[in-house]
Amino acid sequence: MHAEKNVRDALDKSVEKLESASQAAHDKTTKEVVDELGRMRANFRDVYNKLNSNGESLNTALD
């Protein structure tokens, strides 16, 4: 009976550690993805603005 409780306690602790590590990995990955999406949006806006500016310059040059 005592050994059973020890095994159960050890398993509970192992599961808690696994859950904790899993949550930490999830949080880290989520932050990295959100940060990268922010950088991608900024890069997209920059390219979009440059394309619009170049288009306007071309239109002006052709007029």
Rank of each mutant, 00 (worst) to 15 (best):
H2G: 06
N52W: 10
A24I: 05
K31G: 01
T30H: 12
G55M: 15
N52I: 10
E16T: 08
N49F: 06
H2K: 03
E36M: 11
E16H: 05
K13P: 01
V47D: 08
R41V: 15
N52K: 15
K5S: 06
N59Y: 02
L37W: 05
K31W: 03
K17M: 06
L11N: 00
D12I: 05
L11Y: 04
S20A: 07
A61F: 03
A25C: 02
E56N: 12
K5P: 02
D35C: 07
R39E: 10
H26L: 11
A25D: 01
E4G: 05
H26Q: 12
A10W: 02
E32H: 09
L18D: 05
D35V: 08
D27C: 00
L18V: 00
K17T: 09
A42G: 06
V47N: 00
K13D: 03
H2T: 06
E32M: 11
V33F: 11
R41Q: 13
R41K: 13
Q23A: 13
K5I: 00
D46L: 11
V7K: 07
Y48L: 13
S53F: 10
K13V: 04
K31P: 00
L37N: 14
N52L: 12
G38D: 10
L37E: 14
A61R: 12
D27I: 04
S20N: 04
L58H: 10
T29Y: 10
L51C: 12
A42L: 07
E36Y: 08
S22N: 06
A61D: 13
E4D: 08
R8C: 00
S20Y: 03
F44A: 15
V47T: 11
D63Y: 11
E19S: 01
T60M: 14
F44M: 11
A10I: 02
R41S: 14
E32V: 09
T60Y: 11
L58E: 15
M40W: 00
R39V: 09
M1C: 06
L58Y: 13
K28S: 10
M40R: 15
Y48E: 15
N54E: 15
D12L: 07
S22A: 09
V15T: 02
S20H: 02
L11K: 05
F44Y: 12
E32A: 14
M1D: 05
R39L: 13
